[in-house]
Amino acid sequence: MYRARLFAVRHARAFEWLYARLETVIVALDPLFARIGYDRIERPVAAVERVTKGLLFDCRMCGQCILSSTGMSCPMNCPKQLRNGPCGGVRPGGYCEVKPEMRCVWVLAWEGAARMKDGGRINDVQPPVDRGLEGSSSWLRVSREKAARLRESSDARRTAIAHAFADARAHEPATAPLAPEPPSAVRSGGGR
């Protein structure tokens, strides 16, 4: 919902605080998640995430959430899906080039970031989205990444992206994950 999205950006500081608490809880739950099995809880958690974040942020379930680095304005709502915006086409008053009736997602992001304690994270250069992770839970991914504290992955491709975008990975580990993914968190086949 567009209005909820604007609300989230206006209250970016409160949401930042809330998100930091949520992250602490989720990371603390890693041993429990691991015992039940990340693969088994992936779909139910992703469903909860889809509904709550969908309502608040118009979340598109990229699976690599960077709301805390983008002033609580979801970059996937940008028609160009920029992860490092805004582009050079912003209209007078801060409206979108492609959808002139919508405020630019990235103008909102910079406004939101200015309200946040750690708003400087918007200066991190974000990697491109891994389209194979769309639809999966970003919360569980953060939990896995923070608990595992890996510096390299068994998959060289993942290590390369994490090193090339080290600044983004430091703050938002889900953007360049290194831990092995449970099968249910990865989109497979020709649909990619």
Binding site: P79, L82, R83, N84, G85, V125, P128
Partner: peptide
């Protein structure tokens, strides 16, 4: 529209 990368990535 592709936009797989943005100018920064």
């Amino acid at each position: 529209p592709v936009f797989d990368f943005d100018s920064l990535s």
